[in-house]
Each structure stands twice: as structure tokens, then as C-alpha cells.
């Protein structure tokens, strides 16, 4: 793929459960890796994506140099070395539904998660979860593809046009806290359909939540995913 329309921005963040957190609360990605300050288990997705970025930011790499650093062998070693420091305390998750569950049960003190999943637990299940937006990894999601050679190309294109209208993009935020990808849709974001709460503080691409955010580089990942996934598997098994 060279280019295509993406339907939404989602974010990989980390969150904690206020019920199990002490007086002192984490506020930065560094805190996620700080076992002395916040002893307890961490939930992380069992893939290299996001974990390597978080590790580098926590290790002091400036946000705008994360992918340039990952582009070097030393940078990747550095990310894995940082992950090594918490490896024994990580509970690895596989499906997006697991982190809210593990946080609710107190299985982990903090967990990386998709922001929409945490939002659902906060709003629909009244869980006392807190999202730490610092160092969030903002990613494009929901791209549309058309099967090559389809006889109904016109209808397919009409749908792509419909789905990418500002109003259609903004409508997603009536159901879940994922940001529209077009600036023209941003002003159309309103309230949650079911509960009526204001969606603005929950949107991953809002200026407030983006203060220290990294945009994921899908081009870099499409080049390195296979290689890093093998390395990650070997690292996990060690």
C-alpha cells in the first residue's frame, strides 16, 4: 500500500486503577518503567509494536527522535535493554479486552492498552481507571480496502467517500473515544450517544492529550515488523 484513507486515530496508552494505586500516582511513561517508585506488575501487549517506542521514551530519547533511534541497531538494543529491566514483572496480553480486565482484577498495577477500551470501562462500567496520556502512541486505524477486480467498484468507492465525510468520521466518537482523521471533522465531535458525556477530554488527538505524544510510523513498522517480531519472540523465550 502506498496511501489510503484511515478512518480514525486510536492510541496506545497506559492506564492504572485508582483502587489499587497508592497516594503517589504515575504521570509519565518513565513511571511505567520505574519499579522502585511503583512496585507491581505491568501489563504489555505481546508484540514489539509500542513497547519499543515506550522503552526508548522512558530511557530518555526525545519523542521526535524515537524512530530515528530505532532505525539503528544500537537503538533497538537500547529499547530491548530497557524492556529487560521490567521483563520479570510483565504480564503479557494478547487481546484488547484483557488490559481492562487485568486492571479491574488488580492483576497488574498498570497496563498498556487501547484508549477506547479503557474509555469503555471508565464510562460504561464505572471503573476508576486513569489514562496516562504522557508518551502516548497515536496510530491510524480503520483503513478501507477494495478487493481488486470487483465488478461493483462504483458502489465500493461511493462507500469509501461516505465513510470519509467529516460527519461520518465524527460519528465514530459518539460510540468510542477514537479521533477523526480530518481536521474538518474535529469540530463535529460532541457527546457520547449512550451517556451524553462530553467526548473532548477523551479524544486521543486532542491538543491537551497530545502534549507529549508520538505518532506511530507505519512505514517504519512495515519495513521492520517481521524482523523485530522474530527478535521479540526470541527475547521473550530467553
Amino acid at each position: 500500500m502506498e496511501c489510503g484513507p484511515a478512518g480514525l486515530y486510536y492510541s496506545t496508552i497506559y492506564a492504572y486503577n485508582r483502587k489499587y494505586m497508592g497516594e503517589q500516582t504515575p504521570s509519565s511513561i518513565e513511571d511505567f518503567f520505574d519499579l522502585d517508585k511503583f512496585p507491581g506488575r505491568r501489563g504489555m501487549r505481546r508484540v514489539p509494536f509500542a513497547n519499543l517506542e515506550f522503552a526508548l521514551i522512558a530511557d530518555g530519547v526525545p519523542i521526535d527522535e524515537v524512530y530515528a533511534t530505532l532505525d539503528t541497531a544500537d537503538g533497538i538494543d537500547r529499547a530491548f535493554a530497557k524492556l529487560d529491566t521490567i521483563k520479570d514483572d510483565v504480564v503479557w496480553w494478547e487481546a484488547g479486552a484483557q488490559p481492562p480486565q487485568m486492571l479491574a482484577d488488580g492483576e497488574v498495577l498498570m497496563s498498556t492498552a487501547y484508549n477506547g477500551r479503557i474509555f469503555n470501562a471508565q464510562i460504561l462500567e464505572a471503573q476508576p481507571f486513569v489514562i496516562v496520556w504522557d508518551g502516548q502512541l497515536l496510530s491510524l486505524g480503520g483503513p478501507l480496502a477494495i478487493v481488486a477486480g470487483t465488478p461493483r467498484i462504483e458502489a465500493a468507492l461511493a462507500f469509501v467517500r461516505f465513510a470519509n465525510r467529516p460527519q461520518s468520521l465524527a460519528n465514530i466518537s459518539k460510540y468510542i473515544s477514537y479521533s477523526p482523521t480530518r481536521l474538518s471533522a474535529e469540530t463535529l465531535v460532541g457527546t457520547h450517544l449512550e451517556t451524553g458525556i462530553d467526548m473532548h477530554p477523551h479524544m486521543p488527538a486532542s491538543a491537551e492529550n497530545m502534549r507529549r505524544a508520538l505518532k506511530s510510523d507505519w512505514r517504519w513498522w512495515s519495513e521492520h515488523r517481521d524482523e523485530l517480531n522474530e527478535r521479540f519472540s526470541a527475547w521473550l523465550a530467553r
Binding site: 505481546r46 521483563k87 504480564v91 487481546a95 515488523r225 517481521d226 519472540s233 521473550l236 523465550a237
Partner: peptide, 25 residues
């Protein structure tokens, strides 16, 4: 094993599924 096995929960079938579904190798 993927759900309950933690870091040791990866078996050879996980890798086959990964290469069939995700990496398309």
C-alpha cells in the same frame, strides 16, 4: 497457552498462525 501462558505461552502453532494471518509469509 496464549491467554494463560504469559511469556512462555508462545508455542509453534502461534508462530504458524502469525505467519498465516499477520505477516502473510
Amino acid at each position: 497457552p496464549a491467554l494463560v501462558g504469559g511469556s512462555s505461552g508462545q508455542l509453534i502453532a502461534n508462530m504458524i498462525a502469525y505467519h498465516v494471518q499477520t505477516s502473510l509469509n
